[in-house]
Design a protein around this nucleic acid. Structure first.
Length: 836
DNA sequence: CTCGTGCTATTTTTT
DNA sequence: ATAGCACGAG
């Protein structure tokens, strides 16, 4: 009680009032040394850390939690005053720095837990950070109310100040599905053809604008015109207006409303300036413009007051440009925050030198980097090089990977330490099929998510409507689910009635059943609906929420609907509904539960099972595995054709960063695969090895010729031994396609058929000239394919290695449509056929 | 209103 | 190939 802090509970969300509250420059150290910790409740762990930290400081010794850090990490942790940018390469201990920094701020008494704003992108990252800070500090995370995702913090701000942006504090959060349905209504209401102008596309446009921080008035004229015959802007405005009447926010609003609120209410902003003494941002390279504006508003300080902002990120791992992330944010940090200290973490603790060497050499092909080079001291002659494998087709690829995994398994490697990282999710199927046959456990990460399932969304709509009678989207979703004979006509009538009177649809329904506007049948159904909801609302405060949830699903006939459903998935859906109820148990109320899942759409996986992970490269960011398999390194798939077409050079660079992310996930072993034939959209396409293979350094990479046991590509895994019979095609590397790849590699403008011979297998992945960086020819290749006149003409008789002889039926750039004698009509790349 | 057929799109994903 | 969706018939 002596220092004035003792009465402030350590875990308290709001330790204010603080001595110097009320604006103006703030002295740097807030609490007297030890204040925060002595005020802690009797938690042995936190007291222990605190005591140790303090003791250590008194003795001029390094506190325990700092002692394991390398000098750069320590600098990043200990530079508490002023802006800091930590450029943390993959596997350099980024999370450790962040969490230790928080612990250090707390231990040195610089701030209370509630005065630290720590932002992440995903709930998973937030969860991990909380856990790890908890380990360091001992439970104090409970008292860190401002650690979370941009969105969850946004919600928190908005719930407090909703009225400042014209919302009520009870606003609902709409997810993508709701948004699309709402927009569709608006498009139709406007008499616009919703076939030509899909709601989904417009939802994405709005999302894009919001990512840039643009309201309806601020969007570029061109954008506004490009949708629905120039009605883009009006539609956007109408959408925002509709959200207001619904008292709802979409995800973008969770960022934009706080920004607007801060801009129009400087006094409120100042309150948060006083509050947040330290700001930390994870994965800074992924921030979009709106998040950037949000952050800058909060980070501002009066002149002379240090901006204690610490952003951690890696420009080389920026893989979300396509959804609005601005790498530029990280590149210009020093300009935005003058006097910033930039600390590079380049010492890698994760991977072997071969893996790092390969990754570093690959990423060096990108321009516009801040430039880091990962290194490790750890060199072990037993470490494998990165292995590149070729397979005939994707089926063989899956088979070979399966074999490799079984081999590792026989050598006592847990499946949990292995992952298959694909570029696109359609690639997963083949692996799954194969693993099912082999009886190999696997888990798919990031597939369709629990809360996005139909039955879950339906059930949630019921719950939402009970808690929020004004939630019209929920109403419309379930009013005729299960079927109650309420069709489009009825719902539209309700909708109109509600809009005219400016009341929610449920209320409108309650009104309308009192009248004779409806025919008897729908009227009866509507009456039942209204009665049910009134009953449930009455139970809301009195009945335990899980029990109420069950009641709702029973009484509404929703569970019966699935019980009577004969389809194969019905039992699973019922199971999911049970799971849903179970997951509600850990929440205090139905409202609390709904709030949680609006933001946290994922559900934790069963960690006990020993299984291989299968996921996309995107969802692999931040993870690590002993052994990583990277299949599908082929032109068109990886780098993806669309990234090339739509993103040009920067698209290619983002793909390359993705490759970098993939490689750096591996701790000890990394296997890359490419195939010669892949089925894309149902038809077989011949494929070229990815240009990224050319960009790997010879010193760290080894080409494994497909082993006999795999049936080898030159053994004719497919189509028997056609290869063996065709003289010129002794192996994949002397096919026309491969030759063309070689030709392209050295000179993209060269004749695609540059008939060069003598290409040996040693050349795969790198030229004889060794690992020197080459110019990036992605755009040239992409363009040349379209612009160049084809070497073929319609009607030509051609031979294809897989499909045999046929006649050309059509030509589109380098893609030929061919009527094959035996295989029927196919589309193939011109590089894979020869005139006969 | 419901069911069945035909057409289209098909990278990556969080909140 | 295939799944999801929209439209038209019953």
């Amino acid at each position: 009680m002596s220092n004035g802090f003792d009465d402030i509970p350590f875990f308290d969300e709001e330790p204010a009032p603080r001595p110097q509250r009320g604006g103006g420059p703030q002295p740097a150290p807030l609490a007297p040394a030890g204040g925060a910790f002595e005020a802690a409740p009797p938690s042995p762990k936190s007291a222990g850390i605190a005591a140790r930290a303090m003791a250590a400081r008194d003795q001029h010794r390094v506190p325990d939690y700092l002692s394991g850090l390398n000098p750069e990490q320590r600098e990043a942790v200990e530079t508490l005053d002023g802006p800091v940018l930590v450029l943390a390469g993959a596997g350099t201990g980024k999370t450790r720095v962040l969490t230790t920094r928080i612990a250090h701020i707390l231990a040195s008494g610089r701030a209370f837990p509630s005065q630290i704003l720590a932002v992440t992108f995903t709930n998973k990252a937030a969860r991990e950070m909380k856990e790890r800070v908890g380990v360091l500090v001992g439970g104090a995370v409970e008292g860190m109310p401002w650690m979370g995702t941009f969105h969850s913090i946004g919600v928190k701000l908005l719930r407090r100040h909703a009225e400042l942006v014209g919302l009520k504090s009870s606003f609902t959060i709409l997810d993508t599905d709701d948004v699309v349905r709402l927009i569709k209504q608006l498009i139709q209401a406007d008499g616009i053809d919703d076939k030509r102008w899909p709601a989904k596309q417009f939802a994405q446009m709005i999302d894009g604008w919001k990512n840039k921080g643009l309201g309806p008035a601020e969007i570029p004229e061109g954008d506004a015109r490009s949708f629905a015959n120039g009605k883009g802007r009006e539609l956007y405005a109408a959408y925002q207006a509709r959200l207001m009447t619904l008292n709802a926010c979409d995800f973008g609003d969770l960022l934009l409303h706080p920004i607007r609120m801060f801009r129009t209410n400087p006094d409120v902003l100042r309150e948060y300036h006083d509050k947040f003494r330290y700001i930390l941002v994870d994965e800074y390279q992924d921030t979009n413009t709106a998040q950037y504006m949000w952050l800058r508003l909060l980070a501002q300080r009066p002149k002379g007051v240090p901006q204690n902002v610490c952003c951690v990120g890696d420009d080389d791992q920026s893989i979300y440009g396509w959804r609005g992330a601005e790498v530029d944010n990280i590149l210009r940090f020093e300009k935005d925050f003058p006097g910033a200290k930039v600390i590079k973490l380049e010492r890698n603790y994760r991977s072997t030198e071969h893996i790092l060497g390969a990754a570093a050499h690959l990423i060096a092909h990108n321009e516009g980097r801040l430039g880091k080079t990962l290194f490790t001291d750890r060199t072990d002659p037993n470490d494998d090089k990165v292995q590149v494998h070729a397979a005939w087709d994707s089926e063989e690829e899956a088979r070979a990977v399966g074999e490799e995994i079984e081999q590792l398994q026989r050598n006592q490697h847990p499946l949990n330490n292995m992952a298959i990282l694909v570029r696109a999710s359609f690639q997963m199927r083949e692996f799954e099929d194969r693993f099912v046959t082999l009886g190999l456990n696997y888990r798919v990460i990031g597939g369709p998510r629990f809360y996005e399932r139909l039955e879950i969304r339906d059930a949630l709509a019921y719950f939402r409507l009970v808690c929020q009678p004004a939630d019209d989207l929920a109403f419309e979703r379930i009013v005729n689910t299960p079927k109650r004979g309420l069709g489009d006509t009825t719902v539209r009538a309700l909708h109109d009635y509600a809009r005219k009177r400016d009341i929610p649809m449920l209320a409108a329904t309650a009104d309308i059943v009192e009248t004779d506007e409806m025919k008897p049948k729908p009227r009866k159904s509507l009456f039942d609906v209204v009665t049910m909801f009134q009953r449930w609302q009455g139970l809301l405060e009195t009945t335990p929420h899980t029990e109420l949830a069950e009641t709702i699903l029973e009484e509404s006939g929703y569970t019966d609907m699935w019980k009577n459903d004969k389809s194969a998935e019905a039992p699973g859906r019922l199971e999911n509904l049970k799971e849903l109820i179970r997951s509600m148990e850990q929440f205090e109320s139905m409202r609390g539960f709904l709030e949680h899942i609006a933001l946290v759409m994922d559900v934790e996986q069963n960690a006990e099972l020993d299984a291989v992970s299968i996921m996309t490269l995107h969802s692999a960011k931040g993870l690590e595995f002993e052994t990583v398999f990277l299949p599908g390194w082929e032109e068109g798939l990886f780098p993806h054709q669309r990234a090339l077409d739509e993103g040009g050079r920067s698209g290619l660079e983002e793909e390359r960063r993705l490759a970098y992310v993939g490689l750096t996930r591996a701790k000890r072993r990394c296997h890359i695969w490419f195939v010669s034939n892949r089925r894309i959209h149902g038809l077989w396409q011949s494929t070229l090895p990815s240009r990224f293979l050319d960009e790997l350094p010879v010193t760290h990479v080894e080409v494994s010729e497909a082993d006999q046991s795999y049936g080898g590509y030159n053994r004719g895994g497919y189509g028997q031994s056609r290869f063996d019979k065709q003289e010129p095609f002794a192996n994949t590397y002397s096919t026309p396609g491969w030759k063309r790849a070689q030709a392209n590699k050295t000179d993209a403008t060269r004749d695609n058929w540059g008939n060069r011979s003598g290409v040996s297998i040693d050349r795969i992945g790198y030229g004889e000239s060794g690992p020197k960086a080459r110019t990036i020819d992605g755009e040239l290749i992409a363009k040349s394919k379209i612009d160049e006149p084809s070497k073929f003409t319609v009607g030509d008789r051609v031979f294809h290695i897989k499909f045999g002889n046929g006649n050309i039926a059509g030509i589109e750039g380098n893609k030929l449509t061919i009527d094959f004698d035996r295989a029927g009509q196919k589309r193939v790349l011109d590089g894979f056929v020869e005139r006969v």
